[in-house]
Computed example of a mutant assay.
Amino acid sequence: MNKEKQDTRSENGPINLRQLSEVLRLSQTTISLVLNDSPAAKSIPAHTRERVFEAARKFQYRPNYFARSLRRSKSMSIGVLAPDLSEGYFTLVMQGVEEYLLRAHYFYFTASHYWQPDLMNDYPRLLVERAVDGFLLLNTPAAVESVLPTVAISAHNDTKGVTNVVLDHRMASELALEHLYQLGHRQIAFMKGPEIIPDTEYRWNGILQAAKKLKIEVKPELCIQLSADSWSPEVGYHPMKTLLERSRDFTAIFCFNDISAIGVIRAIHDAGLSVPEDISVIGFDDIISAAYQKPSLTTVRQPLRKMGSEGAQILLELIADPKKEQPTEIVMQPELIVRESTGQAPVALARPKRA
Rank of each mutant, 00 (worst) to 15 (best):
Asn2Trp: 02
Asn2Thr: 07
Pro14Thr: 15
Leu24Tyr: 06
Leu26Gly: 04
Leu26Ile: 01
Ser32Val: 11
Val34Pro: 06
Val34Asn: 12
Asp37Tyr: 10
Pro39Tyr: 11
Ala40Lys: 14
Ser43Asn: 12
Ser43Tyr: 07
Pro45Phe: 09
Thr48Glu: 03
Glu50Ser: 12
Tyr61Met: 03
Tyr65Asn: 12
Phe66Trp: 13
Phe66Arg: 10
Leu70His: 13
Ser77Asp: 15
Val80Asn: 14
Leu81Glu: 15
Val93Cys: 11
Met94Thr: 07
Met94Glu: 13
Leu101Val: 00
Arg103Met: 02
Ala104Lys: 15
Ala104Asp: 10
His105Gly: 04
Phe109Ala: 14
Tyr114Pro: 14
Asp118Phe: 09
Arg125Gly: 13
Arg130Asn: 10
Val132Ala: 08
Asn139Val: 11
Pro141Tyr: 05
Pro141Asn: 15
Ala142Val: 11
Val147Gly: 15
Val147Cys: 04
Thr150Phe: 01
Val151Tyr: 02
Val151Asn: 03
Ala155Lys: 04
Asn157Trp: 12
Asn157Gly: 04
Asp158Lys: 11
Ser173Val: 07
His179Phe: 05
Leu180Asp: 08
Tyr181Asn: 10
Gly184Gln: 04
Gln187Phe: 02
Met191Glu: 15
Gly193Cys: 06
Gly193Ile: 15
Ile197Lys: 05
Pro198Glu: 01
Thr200Gln: 05
Tyr202Leu: 08
Trp204Ile: 06
Ile207Gly: 00
Leu208Cys: 07
Gln209Phe: 03
Ala211His: 03
Glu217Thr: 04
Gln225Cys: 14
Ala228Glu: 12
Gly236Tyr: 06
Pro239Phe: 02
Glu245Ser: 15
Arg248Thr: 08
Phe250Arg: 01
Asn257Pro: 10
Ile259Leu: 07
Ile259His: 06
Ala261Val: 02
Ala267His: 03
Ile268Ala: 00
His269Val: 01
His269Asp: 00
Asp270Glu: 07
Ala271Tyr: 00
Ala271Gln: 04
Glu277Met: 12
Gly283Val: 07
Phe284Thr: 09
Phe284Val: 12
Asp286Glu: 14
Ile287Tyr: 13
Pro295Gln: 11
Pro295Ile: 10
Ser296Asn: 06
Val300Thr: 06
Val300Glu: 04
Met307Asp: 07
Glu310Trp: 10
Glu317Met: 15
Ala320Tyr: 03
Ala320Asn: 09
Lys324Pro: 02
Glu329His: 04
Ile330Val: 13
Gln333His: 04
Gln333Ser: 14
Pro334Ile: 03
Val338Met: 00
Glu340Ala: 03
Ser341Leu: 01
Gln344Thr: 14
Ala345Cys: 07
Pro346Ser: 04
Ala348Asp: 08
